[in-house]
Amino acid sequence: MSGDHSSSVISAEVRHVEALLEARGLLDAGEIDTRIDEFLAGGTPANGARIVARAWVDPGFAARLLADANAAIREVGLSMAGGLQEQRLKVVANTEQQHNVVVCTLCSCYPIALLGPSPSWYKSEAYRSRVVRDPRGVLAEFGLELPAGTSIAVWDASAESRYMVLPRRPEGTGSLSEEELAALVTRKGLIGTAAV
């Protein structure tokens, strides 16, 4: 399992290669930072929340989202194509019977375009190693106590797909607008470590 790389040999090697590329005029100073900024631009949990709110008010959209998330999110002006190639998105829906939670046990794969940069706990070895083995215990530590009858599905982003959880619409929100519903959705809810 990989951990924090900031002081590792590979980090030093990358910095060295970067410096050589800049010294030889192959790379402008700051170009990599600029590209990273471009990649992150617009990535915020508000995007995921907007998708969820649309799914709550439009059952047809919800069905399309679960069947082919990449196509469905284009309906609300979002895309998973911001990187070098379009990443496959899989949306998993919470129900009364099943709660979903997402992890990347091997590193920290995460749908940045829809959720922004990942929280530090998502990248921690503690979360990554424990949530696959004892999700009910880990979710309880997040303050999410699930009924004993609710089963838990853990999704490990071990390859090329990225996952997002579609939380259940809270009770008593029938009168809220789509924008008001989106404001209820949290980053943790989109990862599955909170109910909404």
């Binding site: 004892d134 999704w155 071990s158 090329e160 797909s161």
Partner: peptide, 25 residues
């Protein structure tokens, strides 16, 4: 081809009533 493959937790860890779905080549 890459697949979502679902495992019962008990198969992976010897205990647990959840499932873990891993994406595998």
């Amino acid at each position: 081809a890459v697949y979502h493959v679902q495992f019962p937790a008990a198969e992976l860890f010897g205990a647990g009533d959840h499932t873990v779905t891993v994406e595998l080549w």
